[in-house]
């Protein structure tokens, strides 16, 4: 017998009072595909009965931040194949390929500037930049067997202590990176969060550490597999120690 008509399965999932024929029931008993189809339709029926109304999204605010983020970043390289496509006749010329070389990340320049600024790691520097007070700034260096470098700054952003991390280090396929504050006792650590692929992010300090780091001075960037295990992978890419 051929598979059951989707309409019949939908009827059944909806609980319509039009029972399946004996032949249809028999097919359903013996056909995993039709049973799976019915299970999916029944699940949708069940989930649909518990609607989750859309939240009020502050769309304008979010859109503005997206725009400013995109404006500050490099344009992605455009696909070039499109240039070979014929343009529809009436309008004029086809667009030339926008082959923009990916500009060097500003990160390198910024990292170089910051590294220059803080020669003599461990010395607490105070700088006022956009009402952000840099409490201390350190270089992050690659661990043995790893490549890359970066900086970590402890800043006071209008009263909110944050750790700003910028690294320039290769990405590993199918891995993400995570930023940690490790205690010098080597026993305890805080995760600050995932480091975006562009290698820069700011993290508010855990409230317990906002006043004093209490030994959580090692800034560590780890390479994490998507394995569902929340613990540190024990594979660190770059690391540095904040002054106490």
């Amino acid at each position: 017998m051929t598979h059951l008509d989707p309409d019949r399965l939908a009827d059944r999932a909806l609980g319509n009072d039009d029972p399946l024929t004996a032949a249809e029931e028999k097919h359903l008993d013996s056909c995993a595909e039709c049973r799976d189809e019915l299970a999916q339709l029944s699940r949708i029926t069940e989930l649909s009965r518990r609607p989750e109304q859309l939240a009020q999204v502050p769309a304008d605010t979010i859109w503005r931040s997206i725009q400013s983020q995109l404006a500050s970043a490099a344009p992605a390289p455009a696909r070039t194949e499109v240039a070979a496509e014929p343009a529809p006749s009436p309008p004029a010329a086809s667009e030339p390929p926008r082959r923009t070389p990916r500009p060097r990340s500003w990160l390198l320049a910024a990292a170089a500037a910051v590294v220059g600024l803080i020669i003599g790691v461990g010395v607490t520097t105070v700088a006022i930049r956009d009402r952000v007070e840099v409490t201390s700034s350190i270089a992050l260096a690659a661990l043995p067997g790893q490549a890359g470098h970066g900086t970590a700054e402890l800043v006071n952003d209008q009263g909110r202590p944050e750790l700003r991390v910028q690294i320039d280090a290769p990405l590993t396929p199918d891995r993400y990176r995570e930023v940690w504050l490790i205690n010098t006792d080597g026993q305890r650590m805080y995760t600050l969060g995932v480091l975006p692929d562009d290698g820069r992010a700011s993290y508010p300090l855990p409230p317990e550490l906002a006043g004093q780091l209490q030994g959580f001075t090692i800034v560590d960037v780890s390479i994490e597999p998507y394995d569902g295990n929340p613990a540190h992978s024990r594979e660190s890419q770059v690391r540095g120690t904040l002054p106490t």
Partner: peptide
């Protein structure tokens, strides 16, 4: 193809879903 006006429309349509 990278039309930013298109991104805005995608945002208009999908932002409520993502945000929710």
């Amino acid at each position: 193809q990278g039309d930013e006006a298109c991104l805005q429309e995608v945002f208009r349509r999908s932002a409520p879903l993502i945000y929710t």
